[in-house]
Write a protein that binds this DNA or RNA. Structure first.
Lengths: 178, 178
DNA sequence: ATCCCATGCGTACGAGTGTACACATCGTTG
DNA sequence: CAACGATGTGTACACTCGTACGCATGGGAT
């Protein structure tokens, strides 16, 4: 890998893309908006990412990694004796109350995979990673169901505006684990 | 309400919008694409729907109604003695194998509500209607959880490309009802 | 019969878009 | 040191978009 004049250029563009999606939504993402946000010329974004899909893949992957890191750092999933349902419900709560915009961003990129085949592998990767993390505390079938249920609860909260009810989440997550 | 020269105009535009989203995705929706698909002049679409949001609301509402009608017509939810989990799992299966493009359309409009406040009420309406239908067979908390889980399962199938596993769906839906 | 206005139609404009391409710059390689 | 290629930059083009506006038309009210 040859050196660059600005070795951080590519990374700065990805960061800028994430900020743009955070603030203006995926529809506001374009080579130009990203270039402006990253304070680089237009040609620079098109050079590093020939197509917008490429840029979205990079952004989604980075968002996934930072999320996964946050979950792992939480450490709630390490103790095989704890109440997994309660732990998950608490994590969801912290996530929703803490960085709502971040969650919306993550889900917007995630859901964009529905129409953009290029994003599908990355989205699948995310679901698989999470499932695998949960598999350390329960069987794979249950883990998959837990991920599905968490996704669904998230959607209900984000789409309908219903406030998050941690007790409810703990209850139904617990049922899935029975 | 005054008569129109073409009383079906408005309806034809909505139908065309649904076809456009079905084929090209929500990103391909514009006054012009809809006008072309409906075979009406550009000015006609802007007259009936001042903004794209208005058009999307109408389209989402119509998609919801046709979906709700399909579920109701299925009649599987009427018998209070049957195995609800199995019924739901079967409905999901028929839905996914029958009209995949239709499901993607429905979800794309549904998920667009994440960023478009105008669509939120309609999306919430859909979730509430479904929850209420299920409430006739179980308690409200369980009904809400079932809707969430079904949404999550749908997402997993649509996003990761995993084939739909009816047995798995029946199993985990059953656990939520326990 | 006449007027009014909802409805329908065509066009034009400015803004924003992806993309392409020519040129500048610097690190590396020979 | 010289040449070459990777990286960075600026500009231009063709296109689509939302929106606005003027005008045509014909049904319903007076």
């Amino acid at each position: 890998m040859a050196r660059r004049y600005d070795p951080e250029r590519r990374q700065r563009i990805i960061d800028a893309a994430i900020r743009v999606v955070r603030e203006k939504g995926l529809a506001g993402l374009s080579h130009r908006t990203v270039a402006a946000e990253a304070d680089v010329p237009l040609g620079s974004t098109t050079y590093h990412f020939k197509t917008l899909d490429e840029l979205m893949v990079a952004a989604l992957r980075q968002a996934n990694e930072s999320c996964a890191k946050a979950v792992a750092a939480h450490g709630a999933l390490d103790d095989p004796r704890g109440d997994l349902a309660a732990d998950l419900a608490r994590i969801l709560g912290e996530w929703l109350s803490g960085d709502r915009a971040g969650v919306e961003l993550e889900y917007e990129l995630y859901l964009a995979a529905l129409r953009r085949p290029a994003l599908r592998p990355v989205a699948a990767e995310w679901a698989d990673d999470l499932t695998e993390q949960l598999s350390r505390r329960t069987d794979p079938v249950t883990a998959r169901a837990l991920v599905a249920l968490m996704d669904g609860i998230f959607l209900q909260v984000l789409l309908t505006g219903t406030p998050y009810d941690e007790g409810y989440a703990r209850e139904v997550l617990g049922r899935v684990m029975s």
